[in-house]
Design a protein around this nucleic acid. Structure first.
Length: 291
DNA sequence: AGGGGGACCTGTGCGC
DNA sequence: TGCGCACAGGTCCCCC
């Protein structure tokens, strides 16, 4: 569940189970995910309180009373589940109970209050690590990240500036986490479609109104996806059925051969969405609308 | 510099 | 039914 809106959805779902609660047990069922877990990780987690659960780009950051931060990345296939009897559920709360293969339950946290938070990740591209919260500004994963799409720093003028002189294609430039934090393959395709910019356009030529359109498209598609609870590409749904329906709103991603809904509002282009491969990944776009 | 290819892993869906 | 292949939301590293 990996791009920004999905990670944000996970964060909101985990808050009632984790925030303000002490970790009373931590079980690591293997020594690594994508990377080895840090030394004594279970001991360093046990007994400390989760003061707050933050997100930066696609990272979840659990602020611990110990002065450390637990940094978590879901990779391609990482998921959290919560089992709890006593957590008050509100409409729209994240409740995750999919059929997950328990062989891939790699980390299990017992929280004060009775909740069990389980991290499941078949492909193990995700990872977890601990760092001193005070050292965050120089953390190698976090320091290079560009602005969040909803931050004041992120704007058309900003994009035009960072793209200036870049020869890379628009698709690659937007996937670069140093440019803007949190976009992945899906939302890059969607944002470029909305902005009517070709994924093959040289980033350096995106300025002025085009850059403004792109910034607005990125901001809006991310905001709408968060509002929808993210996108769910596989077979799971929240117990209340409310989790992750943004995939039904895709205009480009996964729509190869289907009619373009028309980037110009109401005009209806109708030409088929095309697929191409850039940097080994599928790009979906409308060759007629996107220039 | 930028992009292609491969790597890391497992699961799923499709064509034959 | 079974097999093999393509492909999957992320990222890193080597190579040209």
């Amino acid at each position: 569940m990996p791009e920004l809106p999905e990670v944000e959805t996970v964060r909101r779902g985990l808050i009632p189970a984790m925030e303000g609660r002490r970790i009373i047990g931590a079980e690591l069922r293997r020594k690594d995910l994508r990377f080895a877990f840090p030394a004594r990780m279970a001991e360093r987690l046990t007994g400390t309180r989760v003061e707050r659960l933050d997100r930066r780009a696609k990272y979840l950051l659990a602020r611990l009373g110990s002065g450390e931060t637990l940094l978590m990345h879901l990779g391609m296939s990482g998921r959290f589940s919560i089992t709890a009897d006593d957590i008050a559920r509100q409409p729209g709360d994240f409740v995750y109970a999919p059929p997950a293969n328990p062989a891939h339950d790699h980390v299990v946290l017992q929280l004060e209050g009775g909740a069990t938070v389980t991290y499941n990740d078949p492909r193990r591209f995700g990872f977890m690590t601990l760092f001193e919260t005070a050292q965050e500004a120089s953390h190698p994963f976090l320091a290079p990240l560009g602005p969040e799409p909803d931050s004041n720093r992120f704007s058309g003028a900003y994009l035009a500036e960072v793209f200036s002189g870049r020869k890379s294609r628009a698709k690659a430039a937007l996937l670069d986490q140093r440019v803007v934090a949190g976009l992945g393959n899906i939302y890059v395709c969607e944002a470029l479609w909305r902005a009517r910019i070709s994924p093959r356009r040289q980033a350096g030529t995106i300025k002025g109104v085009r850059a403004e359109r792109l910034a607005v498209a990125v901001r809006n598609v991310i905001a709408e996806a968060i509002e929808a609870g993210g996108s769910t590409l596989r077979d799971y749904a929240g117990a209340d059925g409310a989790l992750g329906y943004f995939q039904h709103c895709f205009d480009a991603y996964g729509r190869e051969g289907e009619a373009c809904r028309g980037a110009m509002a109401g005009k209806g282009c109708g030409k088929p969405i095309a697929r191409l491969v850039q940097q080994g990944r599928s790009t979906f776009y409308c060759p007629a609308c996107q220039r």
